[in-house]
Amino acid sequence: MRRYIQHHAYYTRTLLSTTSTAIVRRGAAVNMIQLKTMVNVIDNSGAAIAECVKVLKMKRAAKIGDRIIVVVQKQRNFGPESGGSVSVSAANKVRRGDIRHAVVVRTAKKYQRPDGSVVKFDDNACVLINKGGEPIGSRLNGVVGKELRNKQWSKILSLAPMHL
């Protein structure tokens, strides 16, 4: 990780990943996305960590591709190159305390696919969307689950750098 620090672009990433590793452990303990679960936000909407307050249309824990309602708990602090607190608020499309819809893209809970293989990620992650289902951010960083394809989240899939 240290060798990337020279790059500014990497600098922001390193910061983000250090915050997310702290969350990974918390998320792994809960394992299922339900009320009060802290979820990583992996888009550039400006939120870093969000808390799940509702799993929509379900009486169970959310899986990959399920829609949830979250409260933004922690904002993303962009690197020093973005310049001061003014631009931080300008760059962020969401703020702390905002209630937003989101789609789960990774779960730390094992999920068995129809072909018998099982997939499990190290953290719980989501992507913020508006009520129409369009993603709020314009970029995603991080792998997302392939289950999104069957649930008509193709826009998120196309934004993602990798899907599994």
Partner: peptide, 12 residues
């Protein structure tokens, strides 16, 4: 690890 996220998969 893919995009620095740990991933585990079971394969039969």
């Amino acid at each position: 690890q893919l995009t620095r996220v740990g991933v585990e998969m079971w394969f039969k």
